[in-house]
Amino acid sequence: MMNQSNLAFKNNHYEPEIGVDPRDGKLAFYYVVIAFSAFLLGILGGLLQGLSRGGMIELPSWLGYYQILTAHGVLLALVFTTYIIYGFLYAGMSRTHGAFSPRLRKTGWIGFILTSLGTGMATVMILANEASVLYTFYAPLQAHYIFYFGLVFFIVGTWVTGIPMLVHYFKWKKTHPGEPAPLFGFMTTATILLWIIAGLGVAATVIGQMIPWALGMTDEINVVLSRSLFWYFGHPLVYFWIMPAYMVWYLVVPKVIGGKLFSASLAKLAFVLFLLFSIPVGFHHQLMESGISVFWKYVQTILTFVVVVPSLLTAFSIFATFEQTGRE
């Protein structure tokens, strides 16, 4: 059995066998540290919320139920996920494509600092009960303007760290003409592109609508438009969580079981489909509201369900990998 899996390892050799450069590992490590700090704080919020809702404890007067619900949602759904994904992608890019250049690494750090500054601003406002608006922050519920600035720093910071990962992948392709690029880079590129495109929606509503309004420069806000822009981001957000998990299934699982991926081209197709069909799907979070016609709700429902296709491809690929390895 051991012999067989060692043999399979040898056959699967186009991934360069290099470790994570310690300088890149440091940034990835900090991403993971913040991810789990947010996770701990977030689950504490969830625990208090559950105990209070179940009538087992009474929250002190200075701590609001919706305040800890907001902390729970933002820290787990936005902060934990984004940080752990960035740590994973950054370390993986260094592992599969070689160390980042000092300039790219510096850009990575700048993005990390911006993101963390934004996270800090939003977290402080939530803990100060100035932003108990849940992680959906639907207008016209209003939070302190520092919360909205925090969101902008968070999103823009992730874009800034995303760029060195994209550049690193395309530089590798340029310096290795004719060689198949490691799948990790292809999948990271698709994931980062999806995140940047999705982030445009939330950035547009926060910068264009919510900040002027929270600062008192405008006294009205188009609520349905802001909800549509939020969900233009909010649904692709879940694909942004899924894709790194799929990367583990496609790339890590075959290594763990000592086999090789069933088909790299199908894996790439699945990621391209995720990217394309993440864009026009947000209306399915607004099915019960006025101001959006039934026709467009149906169109976006169809496009939402197309996600079945890359999911079926992935399911087949995973089981085919297991079966193929089992027969070797």
Binding site: S290, I292, S293, V294, K297, Y298, V306, V309, L312
Partner: peptide
């Protein structure tokens, strides 16, 4: 994939017929 995509098409067709031929539509007043 043929079975999977076929099921998807059937499902969405049923949804479309119930929405547009039988009026099972979500509240969408304009």
């Amino acid at each position: 994939m043929t079975f999977g995509i076929g099921s998807l098409v059937l499902f969405l067709a049923v949804l479309g017929v119930s929405a547009f031929a039988f009026g099972a539509q979500p509240p969408s007043h304009m």
